[in-house]
Amino acid sequence: MSSPTSLHLELPALPGELQGLRQEVRRFVAAERASGLLPYPDKIGLGFAPDVSRRIAAQGWIGMTWPKRYGGHERSALERYVVTEELLAAGVPVGAHWISDRQSGPVLLKFGTEAQKQEWLPKIVRAEVAFCIGMSEPDSGSDLASLRTSGTREEGGWRVNGTKLWTTNAHRVHCMIALIRTAKADEKNRQAGLTQVLIPLDSPGVTVRPIKSMVGVEDFNEVNFDHVFVPDSHVVGEPGNGWNQVSAELAYERSGPERWLSTFRLLAELVQALGPKPSDAARVEVGRLLGQLMAVRQISLSIASMLERGKTPTLEASIAKDLGTRLEQEMVRAVRNLVQQEDLWLRGEHAHLRSLLASAQRYAPAFTIRGGTGEILRGVIARGLGLR
């Protein structure tokens, strides 16, 4: 069986000097593959490999834009984008540091206390700790303002009770930044009274229950809080300001290249399987997918530039996520159709393509849910455009 080829994205949108960084990442991935430390991916998803994350950290590729005083490297958002793009396109398992680097660290940088920054950020940069997101709940769906996990005030902190659901990697990570209700909702402002708190997942009263998906893996979790004490020192930002903070956090979550690169390896394997002389119909279909992919990439890049300038592009991030989700699902359908149309199943050498496609078909429904459903995102977009 031949090794999978690499299909790389090359656009002039990034400054030319970043090409050296791109090649540096590719050399790292090639060396990891050659050493046997980094197997070729056989399923869709970020993967969770703490040892790989630590080796990525040793390259200086976690916390790239953060201040050096917190262990960061003070590089540009576009440099981080190049590294992210290359790691995802190659199918490197980055899940052990992904959420921490993408959004938990930036939330602490923007809203955390100095003590929180000093305690957590250097550990994230070294890939010593990993975070998960504590937003979704049972019966709340995408209506985040209806969450019921509560924080009751008591001396020195808050007593937390409730449940978070669909919490990715909670059974593997160290800490959650949870959104909880610390005051009653105002009927005219349901988003009021929400607060973000840091909850180490080994705290007394925390129970994490993995949920097996139809893909056959346990990535999602239900996390229960039974009278969990959260000291005041673990409140992130101002009590009651949680909604504004989460809105900023979701811009990081929704706009990144993982919103259109989750299925990229599948497309790369298809191109390898089609060979140097694909049929006219296959060329047209692959060209159509690549055209859409490049368009979404340009939107994602523009949002990275906005984030670097300190903006909160909530509307733009929602557009990127909605378009990226639709592209990812369309890519799975298109690859499946081409595999059947070109009789690729009859050629036994394409094991990576078969395994990736089987995984992608089971995983694809989750694309519309993670980071907000398409219906919710289109509502955000409509409001941002003044249409509702």
Rank of each mutant, 00 (worst) to 15 (best):
Q191T: 10
L266I: 08
D219S: 11
P200A: 11
L266E: 03
S142C: 11
Q272G: 11
W120S: 04
A351P: 01
A183T: 12
V208Q: 08
A183M: 13
L201V: 05
G371R: 06
T368L: 11
S53W: 06
S305W: 06
L147K: 12
Y252K: 01
V217F: 04
E218L: 05
S53N: 06
A31V: 04
F220P: 07
L147Y: 10
M176F: 05
R388Y: 07
A183I: 12
W98Q: 13
P39L: 09
V83S: 00
I56Q: 03
G162W: 03
G156H: 05
M135D: 12
M331V: 06
E85V: 11
P257G: 09
T5F: 00
Y70F: 03
H174C: 02
M294K: 15
P122D: 11
P39M: 11
A96G: 11
G237R: 07
E10L: 03
R27Y: 08
V339N: 12
A364P: 02
A320P: 03
I99N: 00
F111E: 11
K123P: 01
L346Q: 13
V83Q: 00
L377S: 14
A282I: 07
A185M: 05
I124P: 02
E128H: 08
M176C: 02
E17L: 13
R297K: 09
V380H: 03
P15H: 11
A178F: 10
S305L: 12
I299K: 12
Q329K: 13
I303P: 09
E155A: 14
R26T: 05
V296C: 15
H171G: 10
L108I: 15
Q292W: 10
R69S: 07
N224I: 03
L346K: 10
P257R: 10
S302F: 10
P106W: 08
F264V: 00
I180H: 02
I303D: 08
G156I: 02
L165K: 13
E222K: 14
S142Y: 14
V230P: 00
R54V: 05
E258K: 06
L346M: 04
V206H: 10
S300G: 09
G372A: 04
E187D: 15
N169Q: 00
T368M: 12
R326T: 02
W158N: 06
L18S: 11
L46W: 08
G45K: 01
R283A: 07
L290N: 12
A358S: 13
E137H: 13
L323P: 06
P210T: 02
L46R: 02
S203L: 09
A295T: 13
L356T: 06
Y252L: 04
F225W: 08
E269M: 01
G47K: 12
L194E: 10
